[in-house]
Design a binder for these strands. Structure first.
Length: 423
RNA sequence: GCGGCUAUGGCGAAGUGGUUAACGCACCAGAUUGUGGCUCUGGCAUUCGUGGGUUCGAUUCCCACUAGUCGCCCCA
């Protein structure tokens, strides 16, 4: 019996992992420029944290959590998203007392959702996300959105669509909610089962229904934008004004409803327009979550953030035919012939490595020809050939694999010579 | 959770109810007894996801399971 990787998970192998490293590096650099600092929280938390923050009527909580009891009888859940943990840590570590407000954090790491895998959906996936806690300035909303967009743009993605909406504050939402119920209730029977159950629980989600998208009740449904109170409206307008000033193109879609309970005011989503991208086009989702910090036991603190999936980011790059500038190939391969040369090659390899070069040799007892072939496969820039003849004369043959040129180099100058040749 | 499709060597992929399971790539060896990328020659699956059934006989038919894949729901 052999073992298989658990469903919905993946091994990221050499050849692929370089792309991940590149993207991660871009994300970190971006955060450095925007002054977001990394936070690393555990990948599991007490289940209760997610029930409270994400919301117990959401799909994530109702059917997608990896929840188990540990040996101490505690209910533990592998994190399905990052915001809850960051907010928990923010409160637990009293970061609201930090004189540098807002507190701007980012994270990158695996998230877990028990779902049926398909294109762009996994049970373990990696999210990069940022959170800005402690500011109610629409400029920070714009900054967060701009950061997300820059992440994609800087990697070369073009076919993107940024959609924003405002869910308003508690008062606005309440008024809108009632309007929705009044609108749909008389004819709710015409909508799908899911929508019928959404009516009382979360009528806003009816607007997001894919099945009844074209039903006439949808087109005539009250828009949240008409129910924003003056304050919420002014806030939303300011966010849009800042985005425009930043040169970030967007579209307002009053039907954009984020899936988690904690969102209010600004909500946004970035999607890929690339052809053949598959059914799941959402690359990034985020929004404001004023009230969440209090919900988790901290002082009243506004917050906004986003999360994006590295898997989907890479898929989008693939769909647009963009290849990342990942370096490949080694600097030098040392071919050794005979026992003495082999012993000597071990030392030479080490010397080159100490000098900072990427170096390899043969460990399979291959013949010269096969060693050269191996060097070629590794994309070696140079191959150094050492045999009895060279050893006797204290020289080594250095071959440039691109041109085929070969020069004899005194052994005692070898390391310096190769280093120089590579410049 | 529901539905469609799929499952053959390291990879891609053909195939048939019945003696040796195509082919391509990769890999290894030789032609070239110390020189890669080209060429030629040879080698490389007692075995067709797992388990069960039908049959004289199954990789090929049936069932279940597992996994992949695409879609629904929903999301990143």
């Amino acid at each position: 019996m052999s073992f298989q990787i658990p469903r919905g998970t993946q091994d990221i192998l050499p050849g692929e992992v370089e792309k991940w490293q590149y993207v991660e590096q871009v994300a970190r650099e971006l955060c450095r420029r925007y002054n977001y600092q990394e936070i690393r929280t555990p990948i599991f938390e007490h289940t209760e944290l997610f029930l409270r923050s994400v919301g117990d009527t959401t799909d994530i909580v109702q059917k997608e959590m990896y929840t188990f009891e540990d040996r101490g009888g505690r209910s533990i859940t592998l994190r399905p998203e990052g915001t809850a943990s960051v907010v928990r840590s923010f409160v637990e570590n009293k970061m609201y007392g930090n004189p540098n407000q807002p507190v701007k954090l980012y994270y990158m790491g695996p998230m877990f959702r028990y779902e049926r895998p398909q294109a762009g959906r996994f049970r373990q996936f990696v999210q990069f996300g940022v959170e800005a806690l402690g500011s109610n300035d629409p400029a920070i909303d714009a900054e967060v959105v701009a950061l997300a967009m820059e992440m994609y743009r800087s990697l070369g993605l073009k076919k993107l669509k940024l959609v924003i909406n405002s869910l308003g504050d508690v008062e606005s939402r309440k008024a809108h909610r009632q309007a929705l119920i009044d609108h749909f209730k008389p004819r709710i029977g015409e909508l799908c089962e899911d929508c019928q159950s959404r009516l009382e629980k979360n009528p806003m989600r009816i607007l997001d229904c894919k099945k009844d998208r074209d039903h006439e009740l949808m087109a005539t449904a009250p828009s949240i934008l008409d129910y924003l109170n003056d304050e919420s409206r002014a806030y939303f307008e300011k966010v849009q004004a800042y985005l425009t000033k930043l040169g970030v193109e967007f579209e307002v879609d009053s039907r954009l409803v984020r899936g988690l309970d904690y969102y209010n005011h600004t909500a946004f989503e970035i999607m890929s327009n690339a052809e053949g991208f598959g059914a799941i086009t959402t690359l990034c989702g985020g929004g404001r979550y004023n009230g969440l910090v209090e919900e988790i036991g901290g002082p009243e603190t506004p917050g906004i953030g986003f999360a994006l999936s590295i898997e989907r980011l890479l898929a989008a790059l693939e769909a647009e035919g963009i290849s990342l500038p990942v370096s490949q190939g080694i600097d030098c391969f040392i071919v050794a012939l005979g026992e003495k040369a082999k012993d000597e090659s071990v030392i030479l390899v080490n010397q080159l490595r100490q000098a900072g070069l990427s170096v390899e040799k043969d460990y399979q007892d291959r013949k010269v020809k096969a060693q050269l072939k191996a060097a070629d496969r590794l994309n070696a820039k140079y191959v150094a050939i050492l045999g009895d003849d060279e050893l006797a004369n204290q020289v080594i043959n250095l071959k440039n694999m691109a041109t085929g040129e070969q020069t004899e180099v005194p052994l005692n100058e070898f390391v310096q010579y190769v280093k120089k040749a590579l410049e």
